[in-house]
Design a protein around this nucleic acid. Sequence first.
DNA 1: GTAGGGTTAG
Length: 645
Amino acid sequence: MTNSHGLLLRLLDGGKLPSLTSLAPLHALLTTSSLIHHPILLGKLLLAACDRSLPYAERLFLSSPRPPDAFMYNTLMRAFSESHSPERSFLYFNHLLRQGPTFPVDSFSLAFAAKAAANLRCLWSGFQVHCQAVTRGLYAHLFVGTTLVSMYGECREVGLAWKVFDEMPIRNAVSWNAIINGCFRCGHIELALGLFRDMPSKDSTSYNVLLAGYMKEGDLEQAKVVFHEMPSKDDVSWSTMITGFTQNGCFGEALGFFRDMLLAGARLTEESLTGILSACADVGNFELGRVLHGLLEKRGLTRITSVNNALLDTYSKCGDMGMAQLVFKRMYEMRNLVSWSTMIAGLSMQGHCEEAIKHFEEMQKSGIYPDGITFISVLYACSHSGFVKDGNRYFSEMMDKHGIEPAIEHYGCMVDLYSRAGELNKAYDFISRMPIPPTSVIWRTLLGACSFHGDVKLAEKVKERLSEIDPENSGDHVLLSNTYAVAEKWKDVAAVRRSMVDQKIKKIPGWSMIEVDKTMYHFVAGENLNEIAEEAYEKLSEITSRLRIEAGYVPEVDKTVLHDIEEEEKEDSVMRHSEKLAVAFGIARLHRGSNVRVVKNLRICRDCHTFMKMVSRVYAMEVVVRDRSRFHTFRQGSCSCRDYW
DNA sequence: GTAGGGTTAG
């Protein structure tokens, strides 16, 4: 090999080329010097291009100065199998097969094609690869076999995974890990545990597979035991724990493990960061989210799509759409379907429904097609802004244009769409015609609307359905009782309350949370007094007086409160709502100029909504309340939901 | 000159 070859190979092999900008001159140099015809240099150039820009790599492949060899096919297939469009691997796999029987289809091609099928979760493509492996006599190849086991596991075909594994003449720890993981994914826990016990040699991945298996099962205790007892922990062990706790809704434990990870000197990876950010999004922990944002900027993790997406979601679930927009803007061409869907969901929850739909249209123009999850947000946007016609159109388009089978959540959105618009009978008909059995959530949505509109007759009918499916749910009794209250049928209200007492069904207590100086304060209506609650009550009464004078505030007596107590007491009951206490506490303790952010477990009530609007005007501050269903941003006397919620 | 298994976002 000549000197210039050696130099160029070293350049290409270095892997230190920071970007495409330094690859293009190299490409130009190879072309002008005709060295581009050298198969190894060309192959290396393609490999380097795959790591930087897949479109560039694909153009290079298609305009290749010499017919692509097996190496080039394999390189491109590998890159696509791990990309956002693994199906393109098959485009080139099929090219490869059409080259004729003498053209080499080797173990690499088969492994990459199997990997693409695994990532697509496409069993039929997987079968094709499996057949090719048999035809080409590479069925017994260790790497091909292992990838096939893993592919069948991903496709939830544990029987086939086992068949391949069982017939492998040689196995190693990697193949054992693949079959154990497949068993866990398919819910064969005992089998997985037995295999783990019996496997001849375990490496750290084996333990990580076990950790993830326990986490998926929700067996957090066993996961912790394994974690503490495993011989050595790596980055994946830590991120498995963090995301495991997050996915099981245990924010505190996730945060604890995240801290321990940093203290133990383990590397901060995109996976652990994504996991902990997602935990912040779940609980609405804005301050920690901001700290993590700072951390990821400092560590240069801003170029990773999943991290940015988790950050987007954190800002949007903490009510800071401004920051979410900023992050989204910076993402440019990194944006994928999840980024767009997160923005659409965030905007919908904030009540910026037109904006959400604009994003939806823009996403499609940029060549990204929606999936079922995107449509949940789009339908949500329509229902929360009263766009019944648009909602109907998108629902049809989802099925006809995009071929997406509606899931229960989509039916839920449609019921919500009709219900909010007051078309209760339409909603009932829609439920009756659903091709899948309606769940309690579906009926509850309609019952909520009945209560809002005081439709007693329909409410009784719906409650009957609910009693069949989910008789213990306290919320349903409350909703029925509220319906009677709105219709002023006090005897029926009392009867429902009595039956709740008889059946020992308790109301879910409402709570609200607010963060002040890095501490989360928790308020529950009517809970025993402590110092914090006293401080909140004191401030609340001061705020209420000011609102009465400056804004003409009169507590709107909640019709849902029992009718037989005195008017004054009813007022008192409304004045104890946890979100008011949290906001009052925030005003008392937060620095001037900061906004108040509250997270509540139930839906905000009408009186609290009016109260917050007035606070935002009289105190000239922004108040953000994230309730069970959406965000309310109160600014200068009005709310982002435009009173439609 | 390329590989296989484990953790990540809506």
